[in-house]
């Protein structure tokens, strides 16, 4: 069997990620440029700045991964890239670059769904889960539970009805006067506080389905902030907020495992790096003789490795659908269960 090099390109939001995955050697090279510093001043990701920064970063990162892997462009067998969902301008940078490289090399380009990259990313670790498993995807733009039966076989079990969990973290952080990115700053403040001193709701925890809602939690935080808080009060509120989000994420994940009668949970997306969430999931799953799998920390946030890997998996499964005309088409809104 011929050996394969897959180039992976991710540019759906504020990280430019490139990687080279080899079907026998695994992940050989990957590089990510994060725009956190760029957006920090503005308190959030700025779409147009994001696209411009992707343009600046993508070629140097491409050269870097080629050099790190010790190969030349002609060695690349396929180019996988994030075609959606995400910010249209940001996606177009990666798509245009990927299709151009593929066209120049006479190789296929494989459009990949960003969330498929995330939910397959734990399979890149040294001790990967086996299909089937339940995946909890939690990030700034997404919160959903999926049943993953095989590559390309995803069933939506539940998702947020309003705000994503990461968005709730970011906006709550802003309400508490914390700097961007809000999630890690809020988690740090929560460590100094005690949950339960201020009471916040656990939205939809007992709704009987697997959907989420975080918008009401944000409103409850606003009401608490408006009543006036001292330093200790802020920390307690941060701790209670984090506990409320974690309670809901954990409760719904366990319900999804019960409903599907599965024992393996995969957690992907930026919020999956939250320490309190990991502690609680590890404990709950251990008590149920189940297991929870996380991508390596470096692969929790957006990266090219997961896109290269998803491309390789799709190629191996005969599920890659290269656009023969090298059309540059992105899908800023693209439900994962329509793959």
């Amino acid at each position: 069997m011929r050996r394969m090099w897959i180039l992976g390109i991710e540019s759906s939001c504020d990280e430019t990620g490139l990687a080279l995955y080899h079907d026998q050697r695994g992940l050989v090279a990957h590089a990510v440029h994060s725009q956190i510093d760029l957006h920090q001043a503005y308190g959030g990701v700025v779409p147009e700045l994001a696209s411009r920064d992707h343009v600046r970063r993508i070629v140097p990162l491409y050269r870097q991964v080629l050099a790190d892997a010790g190969i030349v462009a002609a060695d690349i067998d396929a180019v996988a890239y994030t075609a959606g969902p995400g910010l249209a301008g940001a996606l177009l940078v990666g798509a245009a670059f990927a299709e151009s490289v593929a066209l120049a090399l006479g190789r296929p380009a494989i459009p990949i769904h960003h969330l498929e990259g995330h939910l397959l990313s734990p399979l890149l670790s040294a001790d990967p889960p086996a299909y089937p498993f339940v995946a909890l995807l939690v990030s700034g733009g997404h919160t959903q539970l999926m049943r993953v039966s095989a590559v390309g076989e995803y069933e939506m079990l539940g998702e947020t009805l309003d705000d994503a969990a990461g968005e709730a973290f970011d906006k709550t952080a802003k309400l508490l006067g914390l700097p961007y990115p809000g999630g890690p700053a809020l988690a740090a403040l929560a460590q100094q506080g005690t949950p339960g001193r201020v009471k916040l709701p656990r939205p939809m925890l007992n709704s009987g389905d697997l959907d989420f809602s975080f918008s009401g939690l944000k409103t409850a935080v606003l009401n608490a902030v408006n009543k006036g808080l001292d330093e200790a009060g802020r920390a307690d509120l941060a701790a209670e907020f984090q506990e409320a989000v974690v309670d809901v994420l954990v409760g719904k994940s366990l319900a999804a495992l019960r409903q599907t009668r599965l024992k393996q949970l995969v957690v992907a997306g930026g919020v999956g790096a939250n320490r309190r969430l990991r502690e609680r999931l590890d404990l709950e799953l251990a008590q149920r003789k189940g297991r929870v799998f996380y991508p390596e920390l470096a692969l929790c946030t957006d990266n090219g490795a997961m896109i290269a890997f998803a491309g390789a998996q799709r190629l191996a499964a005969g599920l890659a659908h290269p656009a023969d005309a090298h059309e540059i088409a992105v899908r800023p809104r693209w439900p994962l269960d329509t793959l």
Binding site: G140, E159, T160, L161, E167, S215, P332
Partner: peptide, 10 residues
């Protein structure tokens, strides 16, 4: 259907 916050997607 759902009424998602457009904060992420604009």
């Amino acid at each position: 259907g759902k009424v998602k916050s457009p904060t992420f997607t604009l």
